[in-house]
Design a protein around this nucleic acid. Structure first.
Length: 275
DNA sequence: TTGATTTGACCAGA
DNA sequence: TCTGGTCAAATCAA
């Protein structure tokens, strides 16, 4: 009897090494040129499905909300990693089979802070052409960012803009988690997730570099008046979930643009915003 | 009933 | 040889 393992799913033969080399070491953040790799359609031998990891295009970002990046993911694995206190979670695009979307991501918690910081490694760009949920969320707890008060502001992906219901559910689950986190202890959280298909203006602040809410250039009040949201959910308990379409938040000059978050592990600060 | 998640095993790369 | 990435059956949840 042949082992079912013999049945290898899709196998792809990507030669992305050149792209990696162009970006430097494999561990550096990789910014997909134009947001699209030179992806070839699935082909070649079955064994290449497990392409050498170094050859696969990937980029890293750190975020407090690893599940909010505007795409719909399906978890397919979890593994404890050596030298890591936290398991690594494996996700792939939910449209992998439907649209041969190769995008996948690895989520690994990096610390036990509140909220915890996650390192997300994306592999391959989305080719599913699904609308990456252009409806960010704003979650603001505590009306005024007074000293010591919790202040949570999240620009995440919401489901109201064309995402499927299951994605909505997933997001809601995550929102609940975030709420639970935020309810435990005062903290400040700023995380910006939105449609990633544009691959532009993405920054993320490490926890120790989060712009202060009191900063004149980075306050909740500084937010541009949002487009009237198609759906706005307000929790009576004081939490506010606001969603609106096509929201992009930019800060000029020496302040980061906020629209998506990105981590710049090395010195990828010049030129295009890294991804 | 259907789809998502969990989890142990397999396999390839380092 | 070890570790990490993926598969797929079993299980869970909606």
């Amino acid at each position: 009897m042949a082992s079912p393992r013999l049945k290898r799913e899709q196998s792809f033969d990507f030669e992305e090494a050149s792209a990696q080399e162009a970006m430097g070491s494999a561990s550096a953040s990789y910014s997909p040129p134009g947001g699209v790799f030179g992806i070839s359609p699935p082909e070649s031998s079955p064994r290449d499905g497990r392409k050498r990891r170094k050859d696969r295009p990937s980029w890293v970002k750190r975020t407090f909300t690893p599940h909010f990046d505007g795409h719909l993911w399906r978890k397919y694995g979890q593994k404890n990693i050596k030298d890591s206190s936290f398991p690594r979670l494996y996700y792939r695009c939910s449209y992998r089979e439907d649209r041969q979307c190769l995008a996948s991501k690895l989520v690994q918690q990096e610390n036990d802070d509140d909220p915890p910081l996650y390192k997300v490694t994306y592999t391959y760009e989305h080719t599913c052409n699904t609308t990456p949920v252009p409806t960010p969320d704003v979650v603001a707890e505590q009306p005024a960012p007074a000293a010591g008060d919790a202040y949570l502001l999240r620009f995440g992906s919401s489901a109201s803009g064309g995402i499927h219901g299951d994605a909505h559910q997933q997001i809601e689950r995550d929102q609940r988690q975030q709420q639970q986190h935020s309810a435990r202890r005062p903290f400040m959280m700023l995380s910006f997730d939105s449609s990633s298909h544009l691959h532009e203006q993405q920054h993320e602040f490490p926890p120790d570099q989060l712009p202060s809410a009191a900063s004149p250039s980075f306050t909740a009040e500084a937010l541009p008046p949002p487009v009237p949201p198609p759906t706005t959910t307000t929790n009576d308990g004081g939490d506010l979930f606001s969603t609106w379409d096509s929201f992009r938040y930019g800060l000029d000059d020496d302040h980061a643009h906020l629209g998506n978050h990105v981590y710049l592990p090395d010195d990828c600060s010049g030129g295009d915003d890294n991804y």
